[in-house]
């Protein structure tokens, strides 16, 4: 042929760290299933230029307190299990979730102010109800996060859960709890490459191994800043693949939480007709946020709607088909 194609395959020197969540009986835990994410040596799903040994996984969000502010689309889709985190987690497992992201929301001073004891009981109950690995979130208030996550870390000792969020303000306590109980952490920073890097370095300085850190770069939902997350994640992944060891951690995105905060997903009242069918819009708000972030390197997607779980799993199936 007269025209020869130039080589466009990039060669990368870096590799994303493989992180395993969950520990089975062989490792001192009780999980029936574990997941491993990371390990990529290529940009997302570009199978022609490197290895993508592990598929991105779906985590289902489960709260220890029936959510009050959730869209009725969500509460109706889940039904009665929302009252009980254990049944909720079990149901999520049936629906195909690969990780349970348990939020100890009731510990929030304004949402119940429960403490270490309740946190332990919830963690125990959920561990017993599901065979899946756990991510455990505090209520997002630093003091209470420190209180309940330390307790949760101890209660789940041996199960290799991920503790979140581990932020600049409280990383020392969360990392200490992870160190003491052999857990992993979710390192969360506000949409910024250098802050993400800095937090990873600080966590590393405390002695937590790289294969126990997952980064949450902070998710913007479709219509609400997704482009920032898209670009920051892309930059993080490029830096990682070009050899910046401090950014080679797998990425987690909270697509469900962010997408369902959007008015477009949450309500059908007083919205323009052009917004179309509410149910479909809600699902797609979450699913399209997910697809976009899969494309920029998401390794774990925390989702909310049962149907989105299967939609996004389908997308991952398709994307994992090598060329």
């Amino acid at each position: 042929m007269p025209v020869a194609l130039p080589e466009v395959k990039e060669t990368w020197s870096g590799k994303i760290v493989e992180v395993t969540l969950g520990a089975g009986p062989d490792k001192g835990g009780t999980r029936g299933r574990t997941v491993t994410v990371g390990g990529e040596t290529a940009l997302p799903f570009l199978h022609f230029e490197g290895q993508i040994p592990n598929r991105p996984v779906i985590a289902a969000e489960v709260s220890d307190r029936a959510p009050e502010d959730w869209s009725s689309l969500l509460t109706e889709a889940w039904g009665g299990v929302l009252e009980d985190p254990a049944s909720w987690a079990a149901r999520a497992e049936e629906l195909g979730a690969e990780v349970i992201a348990l939020s100890l929301d009731s510990a929030h001073p304004e949402r119940g102010d429960t403490g270490a004891k309740e946190a332990r009981a919830t963690v125990r109950k959920v561990l017993e109800a599901t065979s899946l690995p756990l991510i455990i979130y505090g209520p997002g208030q630093i003091d209470k996060d420190n209180e309940v996550l330390v307790a949760a870390a101890e209660e789940a000792k041996g199960e290799r859960v991920a503790l979140g969020n581990c932020e600049e303000k409280n990383y020392r306590t969360i990392v200490a709890a992870a160190l003491a109980n052999d857990q992993a952490v979710i390192a969360k920073t506000p949409i910024d490459v250098n802050l993400a890097k800095q937090l990873n370095v600080l966590i590393g300085d405390m002695g937590l191994a790289r294969d126990r850190i997952i980064m949450d770069p902070t998710t913007g939902a479709l219509g609400y800043g997704i482009e920032y997350t898209y670009s920051v994640m892309e930059r993080v992944r490029l830096a990682a693949l070009t050899g910046d060891a401090a950014l080679q951690e797998p990425l987690l995105v909270t697509a469900g939480y962010e997408a369902w905060r959007a008015k477009e997903a949450r309500t059908s009242e007083g919205v323009p007709a052009q917004w179309g069918d509410w149910n479909q819009r809600g699902l797609l708000w979450e699913a399209n946020t997910s697809v976009t972030l899969l494309g920029t390197g998401a390794d774990i997607l925390v989702l909310r709607h049962p149907e989105t779980i299967s939609l996004v799993k389908y997308a991952v199936d398709e994307l994992m088909k090598g060329v």
Binding site: G223, Y230, A273, D277, Q280
Partner: peptide, 16 residues
């Protein structure tokens, strides 16, 4: 042609 799907795509396009 589904308005809900279209709206999400137009929003994404505007963002990106």
């Amino acid at each position: 042609f589904e308005p809900a799907a279209l709206y999400s795509l137009l929003t994404l396009r505007q963002n990106i």
